[in-house]
């Protein structure tokens, strides 16, 4: 059929644009990914496997997973609370809070790390007190968790704010007028409505938590086998000309990234399905007989 829409470009334009996009994708995403695996397996699967068996690599993986596991629950709590406050209530300083949520995106991660050094480092504000009470934050797990929390905080909140704003307060108010308590309202109405958005935000936050380099690098102190996360471990090995080790560890990160991508796609698909359900074409109103209470009721 020769029906051309007004917005449709000629065939060659479409091919060109698609080609440019795909070429770019290949050059900057697929090629590096292949290179990582290529380098990792440069001396065969045996060498690759041995590089991964290294004790320091193991502890780096464990540390990365630990940090993510600690950070994500905090992200749920902070993200939902912040989004709830911003989307459902009017209060003084709301726009300030909205801006502050974006701060971690605007600030360089290295600066974020330095903030925690200034606060909790030996020469920092709370340094003396922390040393006196024998609490280690900087160059230890708590500091790395804090730095990761800082850089991952916006993801959940930013995902939820527009969603909750679009959904409005009506359903919550309906729940309350029907006698629901605050918790019942949250778990039966609010949470089911935002679950896919929350999941999406968490996936992004998780990817960032596992891959974070700058902020964590500043507060970690690079103590081998103790405070090295996977990304830091990769850098150290690379700087020591341990190509196989570095790239083997990098493949683990890349695999984590690929898993994230798959889960993200599934969640996106679910979210789209739910929005489609909300906007689906409505069946026409039945008009043959007006609804009557009097005639139909026995």
């Amino acid at each position: 059929m020769n029906t051309r829409r007004a917005t449709a470009e000629p065939r060659w334009v479409r091919l060109l644009l698609t080609g440019v996009a795909l070429g770019f994708l290949f050059l900057f995403l697929v090629l590096p990914l292949i290179a990582v695996f290529w380098e990792a397996f440069a001396h065969g699967a045996q060498a690759y496997w041995e590089a991964l068996q290294d004790g320091e690599a193991h502890s780096a993986m464990l540390l990365t997973l630990t940090i993510a596991a600690v950070v994500l629950p905090f992200n749920i709590a902070f993200g939902v609370a912040a989004a709830w406050a911003i989307a459902k209530f009017e209060f003084r300083g709301k726009s300030l809070l909205t801006t502050l949520i974006d701060l971690p995106f605007a600030v360089s991660p290295v600066v974020a790390g330095l903030i925690f050094i200034i606060l909790f480092g030996a020469q920092g504000f709370f340094g003396q007190w922390l040393v006196a009470n024998d609490i280690k934050i900087i160059f230890a797990l708590p500091g790395m968790v804090l730095a990761t929390l800082f850089v991952t905080f916006p993801f959940v909140a930013r995902e939820l704010i527009p969603l909750m704003q679009a959904q409005g307060r009506d359903e919550e108010e309906a729940a309350v007028s029907l006698g629901a308590s605050g918790w019942q309202m949250f778990f039966r109405v609010t949470l089911p409505n935002i679950k896919w958005g929350l999941m999406y935000g968490l996936i992004l936050a998780n990817a960032r938590a596992m891959g974070e380099f700058g902020a964590v690098s500043v507060v970690s102190g690079h103590i081998r086998g103790e405070t090295n996360t996977l990304p830091l471990h990769v850098e150290i090995l690379y700087n020591e000309y341990n190509q196989i080790g570095a790239f083997a560890a990098a493949t683990v990160l890349a695999l984590l990234g690929l898993v994230t991508l798959v889960v993200k796609t599934i969640v996106e698909w679910r979210m789209r399905k739910e929005t489609e359900m909300l906007t689906a074409d409505l069946p026409p109103e039945k008009t043959e007989l007006p609804p009557s209470v009097a005639t139909e009721r026995p």
Binding site: D170, A174, V176, S177, L278
Partner: peptide, 19 residues
């Protein structure tokens, strides 16, 4: 409190629980 008033409320945009 609204939950103890025993009031039925009907909203302009229905506010049915969508899930």
């Amino acid at each position: 409190h609204a939950r103890e008033r025993q009031v039925g409320f009907v909203f302009q945009h229905y506010a049915l629980f969508r899930h």
